[in-house]
Nucleic acid binder design. Sequence first.
DNA 1: CACATATGGGCCGAGGAGGGT
DNA 2: GACCCTCCTCGGCCCATATGT
Lengths: 363, 363
Amino acid sequence: MTQITKKVTLKDIAQQIGCSKAVVSTVLNRSKGNTGVSKGMREKIEQVALEMGYRPNFSSQSLARQRTMTLGAYIPPQPWGSIGSTYETVIFRGIEKACQELDYDLLVFNRFGDLRHEHCMEKLYQRRVDGLFLVHAHGGCDWLDGFLKTGVPIVGVDYSNPEPQVDALTFDNTGAIKGAVEHLVSLGHQRIAYLGQVGHRMVLDQQLRRDAYIAALKQMNLPMNDDWLLCEIDGPIPKGVDHYDETSRRTLNYLRSVPADQRPTAIITFNDRTALNLIQDLMQNGYEVPADMNVISVDDSYLCRVLRPRITSMSHPLEAMGYRATYMLQNRIENGVPEDNQGIHELYPSEVVIRQTTSTPRK
Amino acid sequence: MTQITKKVTLKDIAQQIGCSKAVVSTVLNRSKGNTGVSKGMREKIEQVALEMGYRPNFSSQSLARQRTMTLGAYIPPQPWGSIGSTYETVIFRGIEKACQELDYDLLVFNRFGDLRHEHCMEKLYQRRVDGLFLVHAHGGCDWLDGFLKTGVPIVGVDYSNPEPQVDALTFDNTGAIKGAVEHLVSLGHQRIAYLGQVGHRMVLDQQLRRDAYIAALKQMNLPMNDDWLLCEIDGPIPKGVDHYDETSRRTLNYLRSVPADQRPTAIITFNDRTALNLIQDLMQNGYEVPADMNVISVDDSYLCRVLRPRITSMSHPLEAMGYRATYMLQNRIENGVPEDNQGIHELYPSEVVIRQTTSTPRK
DNA sequence: CACATATGGGCCGAGGAGGGT
DNA sequence: GACCCTCCTCGGCCCATATGT
């Protein structure tokens, strides 16, 4: 490890050798693109640079090159309190991996949802980030214009209903729910319920998954029942009451109120956390899972692997999306806006990960 | 929102007004520290800057001020696969909050443990970060010297056994375990076991907690038994076998092999994840928690709130530590090394968070 | 000669065009 | 033509000087 004490600059190297700093610069940053520097000089410079422990000054490089090699990420505030931001963390794993490969640094804003987007825009703009991720947002937000106006390349990761001009990677919510229904049907289930978010303020993902449930039942000619949109009929949940506790309670009430041969044999839940609570409450109330009730969730986070029984879930390729998004962003940065001004939209499919909460329905 | 198209510089503003860029600079970055600029000029400049949507160029500022207003964070690779890095995420919540207050940006390296420290040092040095967090590390690591040599101010967050010269915030592992024992004793427990990491490659935290368990029993004159360092007697866990599954299996075997009146009535687990698995396996094998067996863990992550029964746990003030660490780092940056070259060491205590897995022992 | 106010220009550290030998 | 150098640029900071009253 080279001893690092005083900052070494190009000039220092040049003086040490007795040449101009231009040559040094030439050698040091395109050692491949041979721009007429003699072999002797080139080797001398490289050696001295190493000895002196030279590291180019990043601010200076950014200034001269008009590139910061930094990408920004903005996460719009989520209505639900982030569960330690587990969900976003997976996306960032993919982003950071690609950033390392491409030698970008990453600046994350609003990871914990307490900043207004105007403030983030200010910072992004000030920092002159080369590109921007919009993480887990969706089309139609009023603040998007502000970001677009900056002229900074943008890509949406896990971005539903994208505007035509922005690049976006979208999770196939509809396909995921359909896949869940198909999995259950293949096991022999017919009466399938759905447990989502109850009441007002439904986020787009929630809406999409709920609608997809209805559509899938219709498409596959399965029996439908208003009550199977569990809890919805009971209306919004009062303030101060825990959403998970209350939906579990209502669900259990409903199940008790219906004779076994009319009861749903499986429940699709909006996400893992919902499944986790539902399963635990079912079991505490004498229902065996999956013997008495099947459960399948969407997202396949690590929660599914931690609970006994382990939860069957529809995968969400968040890490792959983050990874891919980074390369798309790089492409935008290097090649600018395409002539037709059309963004690239990619749809990411979901696959069923079979664990222990689904099986054939009780006869 | 101001339309942002072309980058506005100080010169642009100066030209627009017909003054020198020096005045503009003076006004724009210490509008309070009145350095002889006429009120008229000052107002004019501020107004025009606003109209033109001026944002100082960050790279340029950094270059001139020799300050990047960026802090780096390094997380040494952990031997266990990070559970979505939940643990570190909590620390970063505190760090990021303070960074916002102090107007620092944060660059995180190695969040997912795939970078070598040499590489991170390179990047940190290149980026000229103003200061550096060492997250969840501990004293005595061979790579520390490399970081110290850079001369960048350093603070350890959740840093055990700190070297005297570095600033460090340390979690009171010993006190946490002692607190757990005291809680159990206050409920009437006497035979208390400990479930930690089994076998070689024990991380410092694990070692500290294990030793603290032994010390606490001794100190409080509680009965001791080699078997109560659960699983240790059975030796290392073979490769390819899941650590949690295997420790649960061994623990259950042990419990079955001992008559009820000699059996421990409570188990302290190394962390939440261990508690989670243990509890689920106990319950699946006919033990009621806490009726037949009490469990208390350390860390109090959100897992404790998610499982039924909810887990009693010793809190770990990770967020507060991250927050405080940032201010300590800022202090180092602004005031340099103290004359005695002694770091500040702060010890953070743990408190018991009582939930549903502890109660009085079965009579 | 003070004093308030504005300006010129060098500096930070690198990139790179164009000219000279 | 091979090789190296001079000089200006990026954008903001700030000290040392004007200029005016």
